[in-house]
Write a protein that binds this DNA or RNA. Sequence first.
DNA 1: ATTAAAATCAATCAAGTGATTGATTGATGA
DNA 2: TCATCAATCAATCACTTGATTGATTTTAAT
Lengths: 209, 209
Amino acid sequence: MNEPCKQHYVAGDDRRTAIAAATRTLIAEHGFEGLRMREIAERIGINIATLHYHVPSKAALVELLAQSLRDEFMAQHAANPRDALSPRQLLALEIDEFEQTVLTNPGLHIVYRELMNRAARDETVRTIISPLSQFWHNQITRILEAGRADGSFRADLDPQAGASIVIGSLIQYSRECHNKEVDFAPLRAELLRCVSTPGDPRPDERKTA
Amino acid sequence: MNEPCKQHYVAGDDRRTAIAAATRTLIAEHGFEGLRMREIAERIGINIATLHYHVPSKAALVELLAQSLRDEFMAQHAANPRDALSPRQLLALEIDEFEQTVLTNPGLHIVYRELMNRAARDETVRTIISPLSQFWHNQITRILEAGRADGSFRADLDPQAGASIVIGSLIQYSRECHNKEVDFAPLRAELLRCVSTPGDPRPDERKTA
DNA sequence: ATTAAAATCAATCAAGTGATTGATTGATGA
DNA sequence: TCATCAATCAATCACTTGATTGATTTTAAT
């Protein structure tokens, strides 16, 4: 008979990756207040002491989680080429990438929303998540500025406020699809109408699926 | 000398109100995962057993909290008269009321965001918070429909998506003012521009402060 | 005044809960 | 081969935490 599969001795970095993944899953399931060190260890099949060997404390775990989230968002954003795209196409791409992430990995955004709330009162989380949010906000702001400059977006558009509107709308939509199917198309179309110059000839902005 | 002020024997309803208030404060401070029955009791100066007499379990406490939040939002909304207001004025009023609440009672929205997250995985919270969110969403949707009908808002405005945009933007803004001063005016102006008919003569929509 | 119900508290329980200790096991380079 | 170190685990500690028990005190109705 086979011995019970001993997965002993995994390299530290891989362990930490697995720990971050399990932490995400558990937070998505039970929220921050339901996050237990023991359950993380159990989920990846290691002893609680081994978990504390790799991640010395729960605070360090939260830090690891925040970093893991930041890394994934950054990688996601760097995946698509952005050269030679019009501002309108860039904005559409941002929306499509968000929808893609929500549908592909819904737990990611559950954890992101949880971390944003926690950032309001947790210094450590804030220093990691806040730059991420600001990067996103700047990204959208610059797209809106460019579109205003080339005339495709409204001349009286406020890029800063517009970015808050776009981001807030996307997060709101991601919240609404807790389990039911949510169609991003109406939001996508409405957001593009909101910022576009009225009466502008609208080129086909269909998704590049 | 005075005896240490014994606040013994308060009516049950008043106690439950005080418990709900203390619960809000504590969640705003330490989040859901930092909510402790003992700390609630301590905050209002009663024994832990007395707390359990009025609120039998932590689940019941969360339910009480959700109801308290719903009641306050509804009361807030009923405070301002809405007769004889144009759709544009109604939308502006919604935004102003939100800003007012955020500035007056910031903890309220911290708890609201926390409850919305929890609603995604907690049936009890969802059944209380979900109708509240839908009421708000319907309110905005109807305003946008009315504005589209009377020509003050864009003819191609999608009221449903527009409501998600308005609400999402407001919540996003409330998140951004975790402690720093945040000016709602730019968002307010941009939201009104987003939905308005282009080139429309814009009457003075200043706040009725 | 009597009495039943409501409200309160001190003490305690059982199940966690993050963290530590001390020893063991496997990999790796000299 | 052997010494070193990263990785692992069983056992346990000290403390937390939601909840309960049983008695006591105040309120309110008769």
